[in-house]
Amino acid sequence: MIAELMQFKKKIRYRFRADSIWIDWDRNNKKQLVIICVSDAINNMDIVHPITDFIYTNWRYNSYNTQRKHAINVVAFLNYLLEKNQDTEFKSLTDLKIIHGDIYLNELSKRGNTRTSINGVDRTLNTLYRYLYKNECLPNVSPNAFETYQNQFGEEVHISLFRNVILPSTASSPLEHTFPSRYIPLLFETAIIVAKPIVLGLYFQIFGGLRVGEVVNITRLGVRYRLDGEVVLLNIRERQLRTDIKDSDGANFVKQERKQQVFIYKEWFESI
């Protein structure tokens, strides 16, 4: 039984965390998958937790990022329950009630999470509760709590279990994501001195908008100059060149295969 493997202790000796593995998906390709582990702080040991099956049951064929998003939502929820276990008699997931989800989602609202973020966690937790109920692990949740309706396209839509959540307003303060251009020369000068092998990849990130996982999958044959010398054209493909990178943040794979232009600033580009 899944519930029997989910006992929580009074002292926070264990923490849940999301990790990743690479497997042989078919004859010619590997695939990165998310796993949920329990970390033992005393023995410094990680054990794959059976709740990982929840991710594969629902998102086995989805992208790694989709799996990771839901795994992180589950991990954060379970760690919150572990922390609150200091003050409650919550011992296993068989003790889980709808109110626990309500409390956690309201806690996210108090922390300042956006409405969109909280709704995403809500969807993950609703799917989790349905999974646990299907596996006979939620004796404290009535089957009548799981309500659905059909939308205009005839699709079945699940109604959220969590009806007592106060969501923040839709308005949000703007975030600054722009790296000040005046610091770019200093950044490259520092990188050349401290970590020269990464400078070209750093250039591709800043002037081509590439992600880390795309940079580490570029080969020499994937780089082409345009005749006017103003642009480099990169062939961004998933080549699985860095499956050795132990990562759960998507830093070792290509999210979208494409041709990508990188603008050339000759004085800088030629120097690196």
Rank of each mutant, 00 (worst) to 15 (best):
K91I: 08
Q86R: 09
D40N: 15
L108R: 00
A71M: 05
V75L: 05
T66K: 06
M45Y: 13
V48W: 00
Y80A: 03
R68K: 14
I47A: 06
N113T: 06
D87I: 12
Y149W: 03
Y129G: 07
F54V: 02
D122Q: 11
K91Y: 06
C37F: 10
I47Q: 09
N73Q: 13
H100L: 08
V141L: 07
L82H: 07
N62T: 11
L82A: 01
Q67L: 02
K110V: 07
I98D: 05
R111T: 02
T66I: 09
Q86T: 05
L132P: 01
A41G: 02
D87S: 13
H70P: 01
L132I: 15
V48K: 13
Y131H: 12
D102I: 08
L82S: 03
T52L: 01
K91M: 12
K97T: 15
I103H: 08
D87Y: 11
N43E: 14
L96V: 14
L105V: 08
N65D: 12
F146G: 01
Q150I: 05
R130I: 06
V75F: 01
T57A: 14
E107I: 02
I47K: 13
F77W: 05
D53Y: 11
R123E: 10
A71T: 09
I99K: 15
L82N: 09
